[in-house]
Every structure is written in structure tokens, then in C-alpha cells.
Amino acid sequence: MTVTTDLPLELAPAIRSRRNARPAKPAGEKGTLAIGVVTLAVLIGFWFAASHFGWASPLFLPSPAEVATQFQAVVQDGYAGGTLLTHLASSLWRIGMALAVGIVVGVPLGLSMGMNRWMRGVFSVPIDLYWGLPPLAYLPLLIIWLGIDETSKVLLLTLSTFAPICFSAQAGVRSVPVERINAARSLGASRAQLFTSIILPSALPEILTGVRIAIGAGLATLVAAELIAARSGLGYMIMSAANFLATDIVFVGLIVIAALAFSLSAGMRWLERRLVPWKGKL
């Protein structure tokens, strides 16, 4: 075989052509958008058919037209003490506050639990204990302690968003490959440099996953808490409508919550693509 010292330069074109010949995406990565849109259309079509042919009483299943009319009415005139926008705003404010506090407290605490045995030992037991409880089980206690206004609800939501964020930050630290840390140390990284240049970016994908889980947990808790104890919010609007068997308003509330959950999730996916495009690679 022929070898020369400047062979790497000669190899460059060959390497380039190999790089271009990338394999096709595996089936799991191909887009499912079109399939999803068709599924959604079929479901809506079924809804139209069911109310048009009277398969279910309008009391149980209002017609799409009825829901659309009510949607407009709730946007313009409001329902249960507020317009759709004010209900949406108070729900968003609660979950936004809870997420902000959950991230600001959970990320640093989780990171330090990942790096320090004492932090992990002290905090993992109490977090594990309360995280196992259904949030609605301790909501009455929070109401007794803090009253029925915003504080108790925001704290309840914070508790449900904080734990997944904290745990994922901790897991993110623990998943940093030891070789990566050793490599940085042998390049002369100080402890602070090791943290900012290696540990934090390595843990970022897990932290973002934790935030996504926290959004899901937060939404579930939010609506449930508003069903029980609130004067505003999407959950409260649904509960008020249900009390008067206003099924169409219930549908309006559900559609708005579904849209909210979908956009938050899409926003997180966008954020992940922006912040950690390298996730799962290398």
C-alpha cells in the first residue's frame, strides 16, 4: 500500500465525498405531519357526522357550529366572570409563575445535587416524598395555610413543576460521560471552567426534557386546581359551565386547553432545536 506524510491532504476529497453520501433517514424520523393532519380531519368529520345525524344528544355532544358560536360569545362577552382571554391570562400567569420559580430553584438545586453527595443526600428524600403525593391531596392543606387566593395555587403548581426539573438537572449532571470530564481536566480546566464549559451544556438536553415534563405536570395540576378552588382560569370556566350543563362552553374550554398544551409543547421542541441541535449526537 502507498503512504506519504502529506496523505491527509490527499485524502480530503475522498473524505468529503464520504460525508455527502449520508444514509437516508430511518423510518422513525420521517415526518408524520401529513398523517396527523388527516387523523385530525377524520376526528372532526366524525364529530360533524355525529351531531348532524343525531347519534348523540346535543346535551352530551354539542354541534361544531354551536361550539363555534359559543367560542365567539365567550371571547366577546365572557363567561363566569371574565372573557376567554382573561381566563386564559390567569391560567397562563399561574403556570408561567410556577415554571419560572421551578426553573430558577430546580435547575441550580438539581445541578448541585448531581455534583455533591451531601446536597443529594439532604434533598432527595423530601423531594421524593412529596413528589409521590397527588398534588390535589395536599391542595387543601396549602389552602388552610396560605388562603384561597393566588399564592396557594401558584405554590401547588410550583411544587409540581419543580420536582421534574430538579430531577432532570440532577440526572443531566450524572449522565455526563466521565471521559468528557477527564478530557477537560487534562486540558487544564479549573472547577469553575469544568462546570460552565462541560457539565452545564452536557446537562442542558436533560434539563429541557425536564421542563417539558414539568409543563405537562403543571397543566394537569393547573386545571385540576382551578376546578376545585378558583375564581378565574380555564378550569374554573369549565367547572362553572358544567354546573349549568353548558356542554358547549365545556368544549370551548377543552379546545383552548388542548391548543395551549400543543403550543407549549411545540415551543419546547423549537427551543430544543435552537439550544441543543446536537442532542443525541456523539
Binding site: 486540558l187 471552567q193 464549559s197 451544556p201
Partner: peptide, 25 residues
């Protein structure tokens, strides 16, 4: 300087910034 069997490059940094990591430290 250590070269590992498993590559330990940082996926979020470009090739040139990976090489420059020790100089950054």
C-alpha cells in the same frame, strides 16, 4: 495532553473550538 480511545469532543462546539478548548481554559 490525553487522547482517548473514545472520542470526547464537545458536540455543541465546532471543530476549531474543540481544538481551542485547552487554550480557552
Amino acid at each position: 495532553g490525553v487522547v482517548f480511545q473514545k472520542d470526547t469532543l464537545l458536540p455543541w462546539a465546532s471543530v476549531v473550538d474543540n481544538v481551542a478548548l485547552g487554550l480557552r481554559y
